[in-house]
Amino acid sequence: MAFKEFQQTANHRFKFGLFMLYKLPSAFFCGVRLRSISEKAAVVSVPFKWLSQNPFRSIYFACQAMAAEMSTGVLALGHIHGRKPAVSMLVTSIKAEFVKKATERIYFTCEDGETMQQCIASAIASGEGKTFTATSTGRTKGGEVVSTFTVEWSFKAKAHAVNQ
């Protein structure tokens, strides 16, 4: 139920756009946008434009990283939304592999929502921090792989909430 509530807000372009402008201004101005979200997967895109390019006329690696991290992070946010006890989340590692020059809009997809949800449930049940490695693959509109990112997240039930 809580995920559906988060999903409704995330799919509202204006509300989520304000959230990004306030919390993730760099991603907002570079054009990083949430395209779809479900309990299982999320898709985030980044365009090739002046604010996202590097001197080599392709999408700057940091802009790709923002989109890749967001595709994993928005799933995490959805799965911790409304949890009792509250759960903290933090990126602990990020790795990337660049396969092809990114010269058009790239779509980053993370399909690890179900296993991420299990990890979060385990962190709540144990009261201990748990790590989860999510994969986000960046593809062109035609489906050609441009880059792959692995983002390691740490989840932990907030201490003050566990003791209540």
Rank of each mutant, 00 (worst) to 15 (best):
M1I: 07
A2G: 06
A2S: 14
E5V: 12
Q7H: 10
Q8W: 03
Q8F: 02
T9P: 00
N11V: 03
H12I: 04
R13Q: 08
F16T: 06
G17L: 05
F19W: 12
F19A: 11
L21A: 13
L21G: 03
L21H: 08
Y22M: 11
Y22F: 13
K23F: 09
K23I: 01
K23G: 00
L24T: 03
L24W: 03
F28V: 05
F29M: 13
V32I: 13
V32K: 01
L34E: 00
S36Y: 05
S36I: 01
S36A: 09
A41V: 01
V44S: 00
S45F: 02
S45R: 13
P47R: 12
P47E: 10
P47F: 10
F48T: 02
K49Y: 03
K49T: 03
W50P: 01
L51T: 15
Q53P: 03
N54E: 05
F56T: 08
R57V: 05
F61I: 14
A62S: 12
C63D: 05
A68N: 10
S71W: 02
S71K: 03
T72N: 04
T72C: 14
G73K: 03
L75M: 11
L75W: 10
A76K: 10
H79F: 04
H79E: 06
I80G: 02
I80M: 11
H81L: 05
G82H: 06
R83I: 12
A86Q: 14
S88P: 00
V91A: 13
T92K: 15
I94R: 08
K95H: 14
K95G: 15
K95F: 03
A96H: 07
A96P: 00
V99N: 14
V99E: 13
T103M: 13
I106M: 13
I106A: 09
C110V: 09
C119R: 13
A121K: 14
A123V: 06
I124P: 00
I124L: 10
I124R: 09
E128I: 08
K130N: 07
T131W: 09
S136R: 11
T137H: 08
G138C: 05
G138R: 09
R139H: 08
K141G: 11
K141Q: 14
G142P: 01
G143V: 14
E144Q: 15
E144Y: 07
S147C: 12
S147Q: 00
T148F: 07
F149G: 03
E152G: 05
W153H: 05
K156I: 15
A157P: 02
K158C: 11
K158A: 11
N163P: 00
Q164W: 05
Q164T: 14
